[in-house]
Amino acid sequence: MAAIGDVERFSSPEKLVSYFGLNPRVRQSGDKPAYHGRITKQGRAHARSMLVEATWVISGVPGPLRAFFMRIRDKRVSTLPRSRLRASWRSSSGTC
Results as ranks from 00 to 15, higher is better:
I58W: 12
L80R: 06
R76D: 10
V77T: 11
G21L: 03
R76G: 12
L16P: 02
Q28C: 05
K41C: 10
S83C: 12
S83G: 05
S83A: 15
R25K: 15
A34H: 05
G21C: 02
N23E: 05
G63D: 03
A47F: 07
V26C: 05
A87G: 02
G63T: 04
R25D: 07
P13W: 01
P24E: 01
V57G: 07
S59T: 05
I58Q: 13
Y35F: 11
T79A: 15
P33G: 10
H46M: 11
P24K: 02
M70I: 08
G37S: 06
D74Q: 15
R38S: 08
G21N: 00
T55H: 12
W56H: 14
G43A: 02
S29W: 09
G43N: 00
P62N: 08
M50A: 13
M70A: 09
V26F: 00
V17G: 01
S12V: 08
G60K: 09
S92E: 13
R86Y: 04
R48K: 04
R76E: 09
Q28R: 13
P13N: 01
S78C: 11
P62S: 10
G60L: 07
W56T: 05
I58G: 11
A67M: 00
I72C: 15
M70C: 07
L65A: 09
S49I: 10
R82W: 05
N23R: 04
R86F: 04
R86P: 01
K15N: 10
A47H: 06
P64Y: 06
F68I: 14
G94W: 09
I72M: 12
A34D: 03
V57Q: 06
K75P: 07
D74K: 15
V26E: 03
T79C: 11
R73Y: 00
M70S: 05
R9H: 11
R71W: 09
S88Y: 13
A87Y: 13
E8A: 15
Y19C: 05
Q42H: 12
S88C: 12
I39P: 02
V26D: 00
R48Y: 03
A67C: 00
T55F: 11
S91K: 08
D31L: 14
Q42E: 08
F69Y: 06
N23D: 08
R86V: 07
T79W: 09
P81W: 03
V77D: 12
D74V: 13
V61K: 11
T55I: 10
A87I: 14
R73A: 06
T79L: 14
R90S: 14
S29L: 11
S83H: 14
V52W: 02
K41V: 08
P13V: 03
V26L: 02
I58V: 15
I39C: 01
S49Q: 15
S92L: 14
N23G: 00
Y19E: 03
L85T: 04
P81S: 04
V52K: 00
F10P: 08
E8C: 15
R48V: 02
W56K: 12
I72T: 14
S88G: 11
